[in-house]
Design a binder for these strands. Structure first.
Lengths: 241, 241
DNA sequence: TGGCTGCCTTGATGTGGATCAAGGCTTGAC
DNA sequence: GTCAAGCCTTGATCCACATCAAGGCAGCCA
């Protein structure tokens, strides 16, 4: 691998994720101005962390391959998975406010990320309006996503939570060219539970219930959705008892 | 009120909230460049909305006086309070991603906000680096705050939630020059419950429990905190049981 | 003044999901 | 092949909070 090859490979302009990732919505003319945004790539082994709570913040990370979870924890040791991220999504936004990260980002499978020094992003986004706008949108999207999670945690019951989770996951995978009905969970039942505010036993039981009802087929971490509409109905109606 | 008076009044540079609000951290030299950021002021009566879910997004709003809640809702009518906002805080960030708002912002008491057209913010933040950085920090802060709420909703019990809520509220009020121990709740028990993922009866009972334990004094919406450390201990230890 | 209306408190009872416990399956090391 | 470590499933029991229900209190209007 010579320097030239690396240079070409790292360019956003030739990245097949560009329609999902940082340069989304940026015109062809502007695209080459972005090619200095990614300083380098970094590989993260399964189980390893991209960054830790408390670590100094320098960069945002765009996921090229692999799957991450982010989690915060309290002083007294509890922790909470705050999200699962996949290719094209951005990690590290939590670090901007205090110049250090406030959560851990852990790879759930071997992964590779593009390292984008935040200074450089700010510099470029002063020049490229579309990038500025996009950075704002990415952060706003995260805020809106979290509103959705708050709604889920604050007012849904176990079945609704899991149904919403599965629908969200396949929808995002589908946007990346995967099946609308089959997925492989990269996380444990316990991690799903943490994200959804449930215990792992409840997650497991709810999967079994869905399977009994013919809504999904579950074999370990392989899930096949048999009845997407049933999941949608569960999310939308369950409340009223 | 003549035009000149209005102009002066609207300037960030002469606003007594500037150390808490949008121009925070901006140097005196840059401050006057910001004075075009606020297009106008807007009054919102108690019970009225500043913006609604679905409404077109044009501006961010800085709260000058008053108190707001923001809430999202599902198709099937449930809703969830996603936050309470007070003077110096920014409303409307949720609207950036899709050019329309995804929640309602409702005044819980008569309020006044500074209307900052987002185009103008973007324009100015290309020129004033400190503003650019500050906008990023505000959004990042909101993301981190929501992580905290997810932790609360996902893993705390009723007493911990209410204790954390009260501590957060007085801390923010204190930063605005109010007492560290006395506060007036601007929201109903039901709104607190929605925010904390509890029913209003549980909120009420938990207040009564704290009062019985001598931790707070509650008379309607007037709350006096008698033992801040006890509240802190409740937040930090309750889990393990 | 009287009587709404909205909000809050408190008690009795019910229940969804947590907790405790036991065992099964899968994977990987040796 | 055997064994151990993780992870998952399922059953029995428990409990925190929801739900249902009945007043109480303060503020407002007629």
């Amino acid at each position: 691998m010579n320097i030239n090859a690396t240079t070409i490979k790292v360019a956003c302009s030739s990245c097949n994720l560009r329609e999902l990732c940082m340069p989304m919505g940026i015109s062809v003319e502007d695209l080459d101005r972005l090619d200095g945004m990614v300083a380098t790539r970094r590989k993260v082994k399964r189980g390893a962390s991209l960054f830790h709570n408390g670590e100094a913040f320098t960069s945002l990370y765009a996921i090229r391959t692999g799957f991450f979870k982010t989690c915060t924890s309290t002083d007294d040791g509890r922790d909470q998975v705050t999200g699962f991220q996949m290719a094209g999504e951005i990690l590290g936004l939590d670090g901007i406010v205090n110049d250090h990260h406030t959560c851990d980002a852990v790879a759930l499978e071997d992964a590779e990320v593009c390292v984008m020094p935040f200074d450089r992003i700010e510099e470029l986004s002063r020049e490229v309006n579309a990038l500025q706008r996009h950075v704002h949108k990415i952060m706003s999207r995260e805020i809106v996503r979290e509103h959705g999670v708050m709604l889920l945690l604050g007012s849904m019951r176990a079945e609704e939570r899991l149904a919403a989770f599965l629908l969200n996951l396949v929808q995002r995978l589908h946007a990346r060219g995967f099946s609308q009905s089959e997925l492989v969970l990269r996380m444990t039942r316990e991690e799903i539970g943490s994200y959804l505010g449930l215990k792992l036993e409840t997650v497991s039981r709810t999967f079994s219930k869905f399977a009994d009802d013919g809504i999904v087929e579950v074999r370990q971490r392989n899930v096949r959705i048999l009845d997407t509409d049933a999941l949608r109905r569960i999310v939308n109606t369950q409340t009223c008892v």
